[in-house]
Write a protein that binds this DNA or RNA. Structure first.
Lengths: 206, 206
DNA sequence: TCCTATTTGGCACTCGGTGTCATTAGTATC
DNA sequence: GATACTAATGACACCGAGTGCCAAATAGGA
């Protein structure tokens, strides 16, 4: 195992050094999940594989369900910043589209890993359910941006509805991506977003 | 307590009579949830209040999270039928709109009850997460209808994306409804659905 | 009354998650 | 080098949700 996470005591820090890291735990756990299945892997198994106690595990992750998500909060922060820094001249829908594309582009080498991770998140019932709470945070970022642009509270109907619709469209693109091993996520996202403008518009005559 | 559920041994049936019913349990539990809170109410509390054992409770509901949902499957079946019976001349988006309105209209007397139920489902984290699984079944109904209308598989991108968007828009209408005690759910749903046609269309110039 | 079907209750067990506290492993100070 | 301080760990007991198993209770039918 060539893991360099918690080793080589970080100088200048007080107290005992952490014996692992969230990233390392997430990595170890994901391997086990893919091998044996999510429900079949207990927190005890993960802790043992990482060489820590069960109690310590819960100091790194407050829930077994959080493991596949890793550090989603940082990604959200980056996305919030990305949207904020966008010039006002970029139209609302285009800005959102750009943000989604930006934060779903991965180096080719990481794609297989990302696929396994997302397959878990979108198929294991327990994870599907839990992920809702993460999606809520994602929607909040979108709603705040939309609200600011439209000059209305983020909690009002239009920002909330747009955030929901955007999330749904993104997730259905992801589902398509998982279903076809040879598909390209970015293309699917583009297609899915284009649909928002057409499917609900004047395309179907009254 | 004027509960007539499991009483008066149903003639013509073999074996011991059930001592309660899903509906009665759901009702009892909801009262406790509103009183003490969801997390603060244990399954043991509910079982005790219903006069059954904890073990028996889990024969009526496979999960504590299912309690506020009651018999959602029947509602889904009715919605599926409603959509199927709609004439082909009704445009797709209008058909979906009509279905949502139809199955979210409640007698005035039941509105306060429905409000309490939905407030739980949309605010208690554990329920928010679990409800995702119910929403998935709802989306499936929508996606199948859209797929049939468009002549594509229900699992393909457009039906899935539309189902997601519709769900999101419905839920954001519900959130608005809960936030304002005097609002009308049907009106909010109408407004929210109209938004789908405008917000993502040509309204924002490139 | 005996037989059979169905529900119920009790019990033990697993697993996720938490509170508490002593212990360990580091750094800084004298 | 001994000491104090700090932060992470590990062990333990505990809680609640959910399940498997089996005996007991309650109903109708022969």
């Amino acid at each position: 195992m060539s893991v360099s996470s918690g080793s080589e005591a970080v100088r200048g820090r007080l107290g005992r050094q952490p014996s692992t890291s969230p990233a390392e735990l997430s990595h170890i756990a994901l391997e086990l999940f893919v091998e044996r299945g999510f429900e079949e892997t207990t927190v005890g198994d993960i802790a043992a594989a990482a060489g820590i106690s069960r109690r310590t595990f819960f100091r790194y992750f407050s829930s077994k369900n959080d493991l596949p998500w890793g550090d989603f909060d940082s990604l959200l922060a980056a996305m919030r910043e990305f949207l904020n820094d966008l010039p006002e001249t970029v139209p609302l829908v285009e800005a959102l589209h750009a943000a989604v594309i930006r934060f779903n582009r991965f180096p080719t080498a990481e794609v297989p890993y990302h696929r396994r991770r997302m397959r878990l998140l979108l198929t294991v019932p327990s994870l599907v359910a839990h992920s809702t709470l993460r999606y809520a945070a994602w929607r909040q970022v979108v709603a705040e941006f939309v609200g600011r642009r439209l000059g209305v509270p983020a909690s009002s109907l239009e920002p909330q509805a747009m955030a929901w619709a955007l999330l749904g469209v993104s997730l259905s693109a992801y589902e398509q991506w998982l279903a076809d091993e040879n598909s390209d996520l970015i293309e699917l996202l583009d297609t899915a977003y284009a649909m928002l403008s057409t499917s609900f518009g004047s395309r179907y005559p009254a």
